[in-house]
Amino acid sequence: MAEGLGRNAKHVYSAYRKMVKSYEKTNQLMTFFMVNAWRKFVTHKIAENLAKDRIKLPRVLDAGAGPGFMADLLNKEISSDIVLMDYSIEMLENSVIDCDKVQGLFEAMPFRDNVFDATIAGFAFHASIDMNKSASEFARVSKSYVGVVSIGKSSNKLYMQLGKLYIDHMIPLIARLSAGKNYVEFKKIKSIYMHIPDNARLYEIFKKYYNIDTFKEMVFGTIYQIIAKKKIK
């Protein structure tokens, strides 16, 4: 069985499309206002690497961009040619940054090989249909760097249970406060947590294609960050 949402993507995706308006507010509350700092850590590292390589106007893919929060943070640090990709037209239409937009999926990326200097993905990779396929596509379209921050699952049994408690009880509560009647949609995050492999396995998936520079886990492993460089074949 593929690691990822598989056919469960259908109901997670339909929920996500309904969240456009309350998406960021709920993200902020769910993460106790840490979401931007976590994104920023990743975009900062990627900007640093791109600057080191002295690429003029590097081309960057924000994969699973939503309204483009990662892209916006990156763009504030380094001038780049950004493409937003998301499966949700609703999210792309509400983008916070003026750049190219494409509706697409991780597992079947609509780009030629090695066209990007870096790929960034903020709170998106956990919604892969098939994580192995997604990681291989990330590596195919991008020449060097990848920066990911995402929902994870600790490989430590106790932490995993704590994560589950948070997702089962806290998220519906927070979402109820911020998203009103749309809160039920956020409950579908549970489906994501159930279907993602644990963080040790995620590390292995990325290691197949990348030399991993940073792999950081936060909040009992429910959040992880990866900064990595593509292996040279």
């Binding site: 056919r7 259908k10 995706y13 499966y87 037209i89 509706q103 697409g104 999926l105 249909i129």
Partner: peptide, 12 residues
Amino acid sequence: RMIPKRFFKTHI
């Protein structure tokens, strides 16, 4: 809109 048709039947 660059999502292959087959995904709309099963995944999206």
